Structure formats: C-alpha cells, structure tokens
Computed example of a mutant assay.
Amino acid sequence: MPMPSKGARLFLRKRKGRKPTFVIKDSGAEISTGTSDRGAAEVQLAQYISTKNRRSGPVETREITISDILSIYGSEHAPTVADPVRIGYAMSALLPFWGDLAADAVKGETCRRYAKMRNRAPGTVRRELNTLQAALNYCQREGYILTAPNVTMPATPETNQRALTRDEVAALIRAARARKQDHIARFILVSIYTGTRKAAALNRRLAGPSVNGGWFDLDAGLLYRRGEGERITNKRRTPVRLPRQLWAHANRWQRSGNTWAVEWRGQRIADLKTAWAKIVNDAVDDEDSVLDWKPTPHSLKHTAITWAIQGGASVADAAGFFATSIETIERTYWHLSPHFQSGALAAIEGNRGRNRGQ
C-alpha cells in the first residue's frame, strides 16, 4: 500500500562543499529555491503551491484552505512589496497552525488559540495575524473568495521601548570597531541620524539614483528613502535632508570606494542579527561601559525620534523626517518635548495670581 503524499514542503538540502539551500519536495520531485533564507523560501513555496489545483471563480470560505489563501497572497502580492521576506516569515509561522483549516475557521476562538500556541510577544502575533488578514482581504478583492473573515487581534501592547543615551550609542560604536565590525558601526550611524528601520538601512546606496532601494544624494545632501523602481505604498518614504554629521561620514565612505552605506567586504549586508548580538554583548560586558541593557536594532529608530523630540522638533517635522505617522509621534513621543502642553501650562501658571483673590 503506497504511503500517502505529504504534500509540497520545504527541506533544507545540505551538500558537501556547497551552501545549504532550501528545496521544495513534492511527490518525489525536488525543486531548488536557490536560497538558504527560510522566509524567502516560504514565498517560493507559496508560489509553487498556488499553481496547483487552483479553482477559478470566487468560492465560499468553507471551500478553500488557509494554505491556499496564503499561497495566492504569497505568489501574487508578496513579490510587489518592498520587503517580501517579512511576509514569508509571517507565513512560515502561520502555516503550521492554520494551513489545513478552511478559511471559515477564522474566528475569535481560533485566533486566540493561535496566539496561545505561538507563545510569543503580542506585537509579534499581531504582525503575523495582520498578514493573515491582509491575505484574506486580497483574495476577496481579487475574486478568489466571496467574503473575507475578520481576524481577531491580540490587544495592542503598551509601548515600553527604551531610548539609548548618547554615551550608550558611543559604547555600541566602540564595541563594533573593537571587533573590526565597521559595518555595524555604520548601521548605527545611519539609523541614529535618520531613524531608518533595519531592512531599509541595509539597502541604502551611497550614490544613486537606485532602483530597488533608497540612496544618498551626496551633492544635494539628501536621503531618498524610496528607490525609483519601488512602488508607492502607504508607508511614508519622502526625501529628507542629511544631518551634517552623517553627510560627512557618507562622503568619506564613498571616497573609500564603497557602494553601500552598510557593507562588508564590498557586499551589501542581508542581515546583521548575529553580529549585532555579539556587539551588544561586548558593550554590556565591558566593565567601563555605561550600557547595562540589550537594545535591538529598532531601538536606534526609537532613540533617533526621542532625541529629536527632546531637542524641540515639532510633531509635523518629526513625522516627516522619520517617515512616521503624526498619530505615533503624538502618542509615543510628544510628552518628551519641551513644548509638551506648554500653552496650557503657561495659561494655568499665568492665571494663578489673577484668580487668587476671586
């Protein structure tokens, strides 16, 4: 009796003398994805599955699995976004729980069960479930399903980010240079002066224009956050002026023959998770260091906005410069400003003497 098929799946193929590569295994066939990145491989797996046995025309949610929903979203939409790997990572987390369920299984109870099973931070689970909701909405818009169920999200976590001090930033840069990890030092400088998120900071060219990512215009002293070939999205990616300190650094990097703002041995950095962890540990363990906690790469953007608001930047200027919504600036940062409630405070303090005798 033949064994039942396990269906299309990923397998990390390891061969002597070669870099490990994910392959798609399906009914005895093996298709290479050409990548060792799990997230990117998940996107390719979704593209592969989506070409098999897809029904035409909209169907009821009970007639289609979440696996098919994510496959369609991964194959059709993910390649058009700035960072498809993020979708791939979310899909790799969603599929083990949701993959075999029909789309009509999406309800509050199953979403809460998923969150409990994942046992991750609420923010992480929200990002994953947001991908599921986006996939359902996409399939409804494109005519694959008649209706899109509503995904129940965990409560929005309270923001408890901590900003670095200038001495702590200096400690991280010293630790990076002590290890001869100049690309980490550069990443810190780019992030702290522009408030750029990690993936975007790693995709900045020193001279442009660039098609696939942002670039520095070193003649005009501007940073273009969006590449000329990238589509316009809801994310705010408007040009900003380069702070003079970063402008000087970038000019020096270019004169040294570098192509990317953050590079290692002439190549763009895909990720810096391992190197970042080592640098942070070094900085914390240094007995002369002032750093006594472990910041993440995102801490740099949080720190950049915090410093700007503390320095007197307006809500509008901060939102425009850091490509962040006005709502986020007001909710998370504005209380740190020297101008916070200054009008109300002046009015209250100014009226105390006049009202004393009334």
Score class of each variant (00 low, 15 high):
E158I: 10
A248N: 09
S32Y: 03
F216Q: 02
Q341Y: 01
T324Y: 01
T159I: 12
D100P: 04
A270V: 13
R356S: 14
Q245D: 13
A102M: 13
G221I: 04
S191H: 03
G214K: 04
G74C: 14
R237W: 00
V59D: 04
P154Y: 07
T33E: 09
K278A: 09
I87G: 01
P239N: 10
A250Y: 01
I66N: 04
R197P: 08
P79S: 12
W98S: 05
R13L: 13
W260D: 04
N137K: 13
Q310N: 07
N119T: 06
V169K: 04
A344G: 10
L242F: 03
A175C: 08
T259S: 13
S5L: 07
R226W: 02
E158H: 09
P79G: 12
A200P: 01
R13K: 15
G229K: 05
A115R: 06
P297F: 06
V211C: 02
I87R: 10
D286G: 06
Y89R: 13
A313F: 03
L70G: 05
R15N: 14
P338Q: 11
A318N: 02
V190Y: 03
Q161I: 01
R204D: 02
P58T: 09
T259Q: 14
T80R: 13
K235I: 03
P122S: 08
E168W: 02
R356Q: 15
A135I: 05
D285Q: 14
K107T: 06
R244Y: 04
A275Y: 05
R13F: 09
R162H: 10
T33L: 09
P2E: 14
T332D: 14
A313T: 02
E63I: 00
A29K: 15
G88V: 09
D285W: 00
N53V: 09
R205E: 10
D282L: 04
Y48H: 11
F340A: 15
R15W: 06
I173P: 01
T156D: 11
R225Q: 12
H335F: 11
A270I: 11
L136H: 07
G357P: 01
P157F: 05
H339P: 00
R252D: 14
I279P: 02
M153S: 07
N281I: 00
Y138S: 07
D167T: 12
N258E: 15
L132K: 05
I305R: 01
H302T: 06
I279S: 02
K198Q: 15
K301N: 06
A248I: 04
D182F: 13
F187A: 14
L291S: 06
V43P: 03
G213A: 10
N234P: 00
